[in-house]
Simulated scan of single mutants.
Amino acid sequence: MFNEYLEKSEYVNYDDPNVKKQADILKVQSSDKLSLIENTFLFVRDEIKHSWDVQDTRVTVSASDTLREGVGICWSKANLLAALLRANGIPSGFSYQRLTLGDTPESGYCIHALNTVYISELDKWIRLDARGNKEGINAEFSLGEEKLAFPIKSEGEVDYHDNHSYPDKGLMTVLTSSDDMLDMYLHYLPDKLSYSVEYKVATRDDMDIMMSSRLEMLKVVNDLDHSYEYSEEMIRNSLKYFEEGNHTTVLALDGDRVIGCATMCYVFIMPTFSHPTGKRAHLMNVYTMKEWQRRGVAKKMCSMLIEEAWERGVTEISLDATEEGRQLYYKLGFTDSAECMVLVKS
């Protein structure tokens, strides 16, 4: 469950030895999972100083950078908090606010980062703001009412209440292209997020992406642990199909990150009066990352594939629908069929 919120990455690099060591220390100091979450939050909030508060010019980006230097702005501190939690198997993500730089809209706006954390004992997500407290700012650990660093108070400010499994690429680009944190903080803070979706038909050059997306999708729909290892046979046959099978796969991308995929598999069977071409298709492998669900991504990918299937002379498209996905497929024109029977080898 929530495998994407347990991933390690360039910025949430909890495979770094020092990050792992600190995560282990926090676990030993904690009596249970809730106290571990609270202690991890307090460590990042209090022990990692906010660059502006201490007027430190060092630029930190990844979790390991931020832990090593002991400073960072909210974006980099959020990377560290997510990494320390994920290192201990606790799903964590990123949420954002658009805030005024000063007290009025005329001062301009910036993007503030905080974290989401899944509380398994309560089956709920909460948000924690590890920016760091000072006079006028008091963010606290809370399982109930949020106690964040900044309330939304001015025109143009926005609390997105989002929950992304990876940090905004635009913010990370600003950090990695800077060599003076204070100069960046004064002059180059963006006032909007860069999350966006582009769609492309996959080619052989995208083989690795198609394979990783397929295997990740199978973990999610089958409720497998993120560390689950597939058999060599499963990997070999999946790769063989992508290489040799008659199919079209659409990828949904946020920058260079795959946030969704869908595949139309084509089959040619004996023609019938209802289907004189014998060309049929099966829609499968439809997957969208949790934070992008209910935002039209799956519908767009499926629509692209359906349009191509009609153009290729297909007269019937089938699919295996989960209960969760049925409403989407009804909207796309699919109907329940009483004509099909299936024999599964026992």
Rank of each mutant, 00 (worst) to 15 (best):
F2C: 06
N3R: 07
K8G: 15
K8R: 11
E10S: 13
V12W: 06
N18T: 10
D24P: 14
I25H: 11
I25L: 11
V28D: 07
K33V: 13
L34W: 03
S35T: 10
E47D: 13
D53A: 05
T57H: 10
D65K: 02
T66V: 01
T66A: 01
I73S: 05
C74L: 03
W75C: 00
N79C: 09
L80W: 01
A83H: 09
A87F: 03
P91F: 03
L99A: 04
T100A: 04
D103I: 05
T104P: 04
S107G: 10
C110I: 09
H112L: 04
A113F: 11
T116S: 11
Y118R: 01
I119Y: 00
L122A: 10
L122Q: 11
W125G: 06
R127L: 05
L128S: 00
A130G: 02
A130L: 01
G136F: 05
A139N: 01
S142E: 01
L143P: 03
E146H: 09
E146M: 10
L148W: 00
L148V: 01
P151I: 02
S154K: 10
G156P: 04
E157L: 11
D159C: 12
H164Q: 12
L175A: 09
T176W: 08
Y185T: 13
Y185G: 14
L186C: 13
L186W: 08
H187S: 05
Y188L: 13
S194M: 03
K200Q: 09
R204M: 12
D205P: 09
D205V: 10
M210V: 10
M211V: 12
E216M: 14
N222C: 06
M234R: 08
I235C: 01
S238R: 13
S238I: 12
E243V: 07
E243M: 08
N246D: 12
H247P: 03
V250N: 00
L253G: 12
G255L: 01
R257I: 11
R257N: 05
V258D: 12
C265R: 15
F273W: 15
F273S: 12
S274T: 08
P276N: 06
T277W: 08
G278P: 13
A281E: 07
H282F: 08
L283W: 05
L283I: 07
M284E: 14
V286I: 02
Y287K: 02
Y287A: 02
M289T: 15
R294T: 15
R295K: 14
K300S: 04
K300W: 02
L305V: 06
E308G: 12
A309E: 04
R312H: 04
V314D: 10
T322A: 08
E324N: 07
Y330A: 14
Y330E: 10
K331L: 05
G333I: 04
E339P: 06
